[in-house]
């Protein structure tokens, strides 16, 4: 699948393929695995996805971002399976004529992918325990009923 893969993400290769004669700015974001979370030592992560739906949703988010921010190109790949410390869990690359659009679109894409796409993080800790992750940092109780880009819209 184009946007979901169970092997290491080679973002240098993706970046090299990203040249475009109309692009004066290319932004690459790599979400990487930290060795700690909320004060606890993390050994590694495992990602699970409802892969066909996640792949489709990422593709739709990229298309929307391309028209909304006038991008020349946009790419996003998310890992499933085990990712070690400092491994790349997700990469987003955006290219546009000028830097503002590439930066803004990159943030828009990663925020929507984290908040909406059916992908889940399983954190493994040094003490031998593990937990399914929660990205949600909203304060309202009913925010999961908003079935769209709530976080990004609040940030605008």
């Amino acid at each position: 699948m184009k946007h979901i893969q169970n092997t290491a993400i080679n973002y240098s290769e993706l970046f090299d393929d990203f040249r475009h004669p109309h692009s004066g700015a290319v932004v690459l974001f790599s979400g990487e695995v930290r060795d700690n979370n909320k004060g606890r030592a993390v050994t590694h992560l495992e990602y699970e996805a409802y892969a066909p739906m996640a792949n489709k949703m990422i593709s739709e988010i990229l298309e929307e971002a391309k028209s909304r921010f006038k991008l020349n190109q946009a790419a996003c790949v998310h890992r499933v399976g085990r990712v070690e410390i400092s491994g790349c869990a997700v990469v987003v690359i955006t290219g546009s004529g000028h830097r503002k659009e590439a930066y803004d679109a990159n943030r828009y894409i990663i925020d929507r992918v984290k908040n909406e796409v059916p992908i889940w993080k399983h954190e493994f800790f040094a003490d031998g325990t593990s937990e399914w992750g929660q990205n949600c940092d909203c304060v309202s109780n009913d925010h999961h009923n908003h079935q769209h880009h709530h976080h990004y819209e609040r940030a605008e």
């Binding site: 979400g31 990602y47 996805a49 409802y50 739906m53 996640a54 998310h78 869990a89 997700v90 990663i110 992918v113 984290k114 908040n115 909406e116 796409v117 059916p118 992908i119 889940w120 993080k121 399914w132 992750g133 929660q134 990205n135 949600c136 999961h144």
Partner: peptide
Amino acid sequence: LFLIPPSSGG
């Protein structure tokens, strides 16, 4: 039917 818990990717 697919039961989808809150996303936590990234």
